[in-house]
């Protein structure tokens, strides 16, 4: 079965890309093995303590915790994206694997389908 890698690269509220990536992961996971990679400003989607009620938007960061139930076990975050933004693994709402740029290149190689949001 073809494996999917979904890359989410945008901050959570400025655009709808992040939410769309999450919806794509949930849907694809019913049919194929899916991995999810938080890259660039995408890492801000899983920053702790979000409270989008302040700006009257639905906060979807709690939904990421459901991914395990959907058999999405491979969740990666770019180490360099975190570092550039002054963040560490401890700032995130989710248990993730923090990976190097070289590992990211490897993920792009080994997954049959790569979707970037």
């Amino acid at each position: 079965m073809k494996s999917f890698l979904i890359i989410t690269r945008r901050s959570p509220y400025g655009t709808s890309y992040g939410k769309e990536a999450l919806d794509a992961v949930l849907m694809a996971s019913a049919f194929v093995p899916v991995s999810l990679l938080f890259l660039d400003d995408g890492v801000f989607q899983i920053k702790q303590h979000q409270d989008a009620d302040c700006i009257e938007i639905k906060d979807y960061s709690p939904t990421f915790a459901v991914l395990e139930q959907y058999d999405v076990k491979n969740i990666y975050v770019s180490a360099s994206s975190l570092q550039h933004r002054g963040l560490t693994e401890k700032d995130l709402v989710l248990d993730v694997e923090v990976i190097s740029d070289a590992r990211i290149a490897n993920l792009l190689d080994t997954n049959a389908v790569v979707l970037s949001f």
Partner: peptide, 15 residues
């Protein structure tokens, strides 16, 4: 309430 989404039937059955 926990995840802010509805489960699919498959996930509901598993829950």
């Amino acid at each position: 309430m926990k995840y802010k989404i509805s489960p699919t039937m498959r996930v509901l059955v598993r829950q």
